[in-house]
């Protein structure tokens, strides 16, 4: 389980708290969706989960250990894999193939095992045809697929997708999420979807809505339909039908 307890965070040089006494839990298995308005602290929360950022006050625990106490920190990064909103921020390699192998190389996975995993994930994410290309030269949607594959290949127990499928065509997005949810089910691992798509949040077992750096609503996916007017007030996207009915389009 990932647990935020009274977490406050502010970026250096800023006078605004992005998160204010934020408390919530992400179960150790199943699908959790996080939604919220722009600047509400969703991406910051993702970076706190794997220790890239640390709270100013409060604590983020992963499997009952505060993120600041994981030693080495690389163990925490392997346990909690975050796919960034902007894939350009996470590329480090000259080719797609090397990018996918990068995490496994750092984890000192034996070569034959690594070779097999890279091949499997190139195929699974439909990247075999562009394996020799530079990630930087790809289209936005292709970059997102590379970023996803390069994190998923390490099989983190907690896979956090921070609006990581936004540039995929609807069919590709649907398939990728269905695969990720099925895998979380079979591995009994956890998938965290940070999303602005109501249809993605409806796939989750648990939904957390953040507003102004704090949890304003949480529960099963049914809260999305039941609270459409409240979500609109908070700036959270709702389905087209709910938006039209609420006179907000």
């Amino acid at each position: 389980m990932i647990e935020f307890r009274d977490v406050t965070f502010r970026y250096p040089g800023s006078d605004i708290d992005v998160l204010r006494n934020l408390s919530f839990r992400i179960p150790g298995k199943g699908v959790t969706a996080m939604m919220g308005a722009n600047g509400s602290g969703k991406s910051t929360s993702a970076l706190l989960m794997n220790g890239i950022l640390t709270p100013a006050s409060g604590v983020v625990e992963v499997d009952s250990v505060p993120t600041t106490e994981w030693n080495p920190q690389s163990d925490l990064r392997r346990l909690v894999g975050v796919v960034f909103q902007d894939p350009n921020l996470q590329f480090t390699s000259m080719t797609v193939e090397r990018e996918i192998a990068f995490g496994l190389e750092n984890a000192k996975i034996p070569f034959d095992l690594m070779r097999g995993s890279v091949e499997e994930f190139l195929g699974r994410f439909d990247l075999s045809g562009i394996r020799d290309q530079s990630p930087a030269s790809l289209s936005g949607g292709e970059k997102q697929r590379v970023a996803l594959a390069s994190v998923a290949v390490s099989c983190p127990h907690y896979l956090v997708l921070d609006e990581a499928t936004t540039l995929l065509s609807p069919r590709a997005r649907r398939k990728l999420l269905a695969d990720a949810i099925a895998e979380a089910g079979s591995r009994e691992s956890a998938l965290v979807l940070i999303t602005q798509f109501p249809d993605e949040a409806l796939l989750a077992d648990h939904v957390v809505i953040i507003g102004n750096g704090a949890v304003v609503l949480q529960g099963g996916p049914e809260v999305l339909a039941a609270s459409a007017a409240e979500l609109i007030r908070l700036g959270v996207p709702v389905s087209l039908r709910d938006r039209l009915i609420a006179d907000e389009y």
């Binding site: 308005a37 722009n38 909103q85 540039l167 609109i232 938006r243």
Partner: peptide
Amino acid sequence: DEPTVGLDGDGLS
């Protein structure tokens, strides 16, 4: 180019 990506409900309005 993909102007709605990352926008919240208010941003979309």
